[in-house]
Computed example of a mutant assay.
Amino acid sequence: MAAEVITTDDLREFKLELLEDFKKLLAEQKGIPTKKWLRSEEVKKLLNISPGTLQNLRVNGTLPFTKMGGVLYYDSQDIHSILEQNKIS
């Protein structure tokens, strides 16, 4: 059986990959979605809002969306930026 040599660069790369995986797991546990596009159900759950409230946000132009094949998608960055813009200090 051949021995495999592990260099410090290999260990450094492994460490960076492991840290990135931990960051994703922690973000998911905090309720921050890691997906770029969210469906209506995910947005309602994230913001704790009703279907009617989500529809009002779409209709009045507060929350941009994309519709494909009858399914509505929302950009998670748009949601976070809207929350930041309306933040009260």
Rank of each mutant, 00 (worst) to 15 (best):
E84S: 09
S89W: 06
K67W: 02
T53E: 12
L46W: 01
A27S: 15
P51Y: 01
G70D: 00
G52D: 11
L47G: 05
Q29I: 00
L26C: 09
S89V: 11
E28H: 11
M1W: 04
S89Q: 10
L11I: 10
I49A: 07
D10I: 04
S50A: 05
D21K: 15
K67N: 04
K15S: 10
K30P: 00
R39L: 08
D21A: 14
M68N: 07
Q55F: 12
S81Y: 10
P33C: 05
H80L: 12
K67S: 03
R58V: 09
K36W: 06
L47C: 10
T34K: 10
F65K: 02
G61N: 13
K23A: 04
T53L: 06
Y74C: 01
T66Y: 06
K67F: 01
D78I: 04
I49E: 08
I79Y: 00
E20Y: 07
T62A: 14
D9G: 08
D9A: 15
I49K: 06
D10H: 14
R58D: 07
K23L: 02
L18D: 10
R39C: 06
E17P: 08
L26H: 11
D75I: 02
L18F: 10
S89P: 08
L47M: 15
L38Y: 00
I79R: 00
I49V: 15
